[in-house]
Amino acid sequence: MKLLIMGFLTGLAFGFLLQKGRVLRYEKQLGALRLIDMTIFKFMLSAILTGMVGLYLLHDLGMVSMSIKQTILGANIVGGLLFGIGWGLFGLCPGTAVGALGEGRWHAAFGIVGMLAGASLYNAFYPALKASVLTWGDLGKVTLPDVVHLNHWLVIIVLAVLFILLFRLFERLRL
């Protein structure tokens, strides 16, 4: 019960901030995919930058444990591209679609029903996928530092520099 209440409160903060950052809009999502408005990338990369520093700090202090998803190259690539195609058509992702509905953008509901249909379709195809795509290039639960054999803080510093250079580029081009 306490976990469910915490879920609700976390969602309340998450939804409020997504709304204030104005990333729940079709225009912002398509704007990024059409390379004319990078708001969602500024928002997302800033969240990732803050999160990775905080999480690895707490992790090194032994205060949190990570939950790394398995890398299956075939599934990540094929699934990722299919997701991208759908994202370009719908203009919202699962989390932002729910938030867009909260902002009154009720056309998101059509996509939410579509996503439920997509989940049902995936369940129907699961036995076939499990024997094929879901076995292609299974690397296990690996992180970028594991792959490049570097300390995670070195990887974080490199990514932070990259993100900040991207931010400067976005601002310079007024995206």
Binding site: I48, K69, P94, L139, K141
Partner: peptide
């Protein structure tokens, strides 16, 4: 679009929140 996106997200085992935010924060290759 929603149907494609969700089928893809389940196959990839995550969406821009799970893979994008949580995955990158943990430096997960996936």
């Amino acid at each position: 679009g929603g149907a494609f996106a969700m089928f893809g997200a389940r196959l990839a085992d995550g969406c821009p929140s799970g893979h994008g935010l949580s995955g990158l924060m943990q430096l997960s290759l996936s």
